[in-house]
Design a binder for these strands. Sequence first.
DNA 1: GATGAATGAGCCTTCATTCAT
DNA 2: CATGAATGAAGGCTCATTCAT
Lengths: 161, 161, 161, 161
Amino acid sequence: MSQVAEHAQVGMGTIYNYFPSKEDLIVSLFNEINVAMTQHILKGYDETQPVVVRVLYLLNSMVRYGLQHPREFLLTNQLAMVPFIHERVKGNVKALAVAFDQLLSDAQEQHLLKAMPPAVMWVLVAGAMNALVEGHMTQQIELDQATIEQATSACWDAIKR
Amino acid sequence: MSQVAEHAQVGMGTIYNYFPSKEDLIVSLFNEINVAMTQHILKGYDETQPVVVRVLYLLNSMVRYGLQHPREFLLTNQLAMVPFIHERVKGNVKALAVAFDQLLSDAQEQHLLKAMPPAVMWVLVAGAMNALVEGHMTQQIELDQATIEQATSACWDAIKR
Amino acid sequence: MSQVAEHAQVGMGTIYNYFPSKEDLIVSLFNEINVAMTQHILKGYDETQPVVVRVLYLLNSMVRYGLQHPREFLLTNQLAMVPFIHERVKGNVKALAVAFDQLLSDAQEQHLLKAMPPAVMWVLVAGAMNALVEGHMTQQIELDQATIEQATSACWDAIKR
Amino acid sequence: MSQVAEHAQVGMGTIYNYFPSKEDLIVSLFNEINVAMTQHILKGYDETQPVVVRVLYLLNSMVRYGLQHPREFLLTNQLAMVPFIHERVKGNVKALAVAFDQLLSDAQEQHLLKAMPPAVMWVLVAGAMNALVEGHMTQQIELDQATIEQATSACWDAIKR
DNA sequence: GATGAATGAGCCTTCATTCAT
DNA sequence: CATGAATGAAGGCTCATTCAT
């Protein structure tokens, strides 16, 4: 906390005027990052486009966000696995998941997708995209634009009928 | 460490007769779990089977391991993102990744897969499977046998030509 | 450290706001005592007096300091033999030794002293004076004013031509 | 204690068959070294020689012991200042001091020495000799044979009438 | 509302001592 | 008698939190 205060050019006690505890600070940070990430990913998203285009666009956006904001990306991914985050975040960060669910549900009604719960499809492709970025960060794989497009395309193949 | 000692019904100092430090204890635990996990997943794996069967078998095994050993699954996933683990584990836990890479390379030579680096394909499907189990644990999705098979099958669709 | 904090009527952590580590605390204490001791011993020292008077004055002062500040005396003597003190104190505590060396060098030029390195003479008389105080503290000898004067006079006989 | 056992090629518990505690071990070691040191110093000591010769002989022996057995020398000097040693050593290590006291008392009866308590004289010269060796060990002074003889001679001047 | 020195529970680690074999 | 794995009190140090200014 002292390092946070120092970085913020603020007295230690001031933090506690805005956040009751370190945990609350972290939860707020987590939410803030998720909101920003969602906005970033949905920017330029055109609902009038065909389903394929929209899915590929979102997946691409997710990867690009991870590459452009590595700190935020790693932080949210790590925090997402910490128990007290689950208990306190409720449903306000799932905006992206909800948007995707909606998109997938629509697509499914048009018989473009497999007969799988949309939530499962979202989990699969989101997990694949996250792993892609992590693999790049830990130097396990090279991630150029061509590879990204191959990967997102593969994800589409995974869920398309 | 005191909680570990208490849980092990052992004096605090006894731990230090077997592990030089807390970090060494954790690295050892991490390696032990990974060895056991790899053995569990490769059990019953038949290299004489067709590629599709083998891929689906491994993916299924991965998911089942996660479901049957939630604590180990969560622990390794969390530890895998901690810096000092990366620095000290080197390459001994990648047995599974290597096996998969080999399988995918073979399959690729038979023109069964997309023209994508095997490492990327591994990252994608492993990430998807991990996310599947995590989604189940965080109650985001229901994960019955049918869903698992749909998911693994979708992964195959993602990488197959 | 907890005992130090308790004695200082202060929380444990407070100490670490002023000293980075236990070792730093001890080095600081050592230096502080040495500065105070040097001031105490040099108080009233008159450089215009004849050499004999000055030498006897300093030796007397050293003994009196030891008798009046037994804790500080014992502590510095013990600490002076601890390795990490040597490595970190450098030359700032040798003010007294330097002053004495200067005095002895001057006296030597006047052919009042033996042809011995001043450093050796300083070591001899300082060692004798320290042993005198220690002998008193460990009850090996009685140390009244008469004995002190006999002892300092004997030291002068040791080094005078 | 484990290092002591290892160095002695003995099991840890074995030590406790011979010494009830670490403190007892140290006290025994202290006594043993002092006995050996006394023997070493008194070796070749000829009571039939004149007082001057005997005194100079003993002082020289003390210095040579320190130079030849630096570890033992430093250990006893350090231990001599630790409280629990004082309380437990009683009078058995003062053999050397007693011998010297006797010599000095004899000499005093012959009016060769100053009218000072023999114990005080012993403390002075022993302290000076110890400091001489310590000064050599801490590199404060150079200690060749000539310097040693100058120093012992100076000590004699300090106590002789 | 801002500050940051003070706080002390809790952490990892050591090591003299014990005791079952 | 010898052994050495087991023990746990004690040590130095950290850091989230408080509160007097």
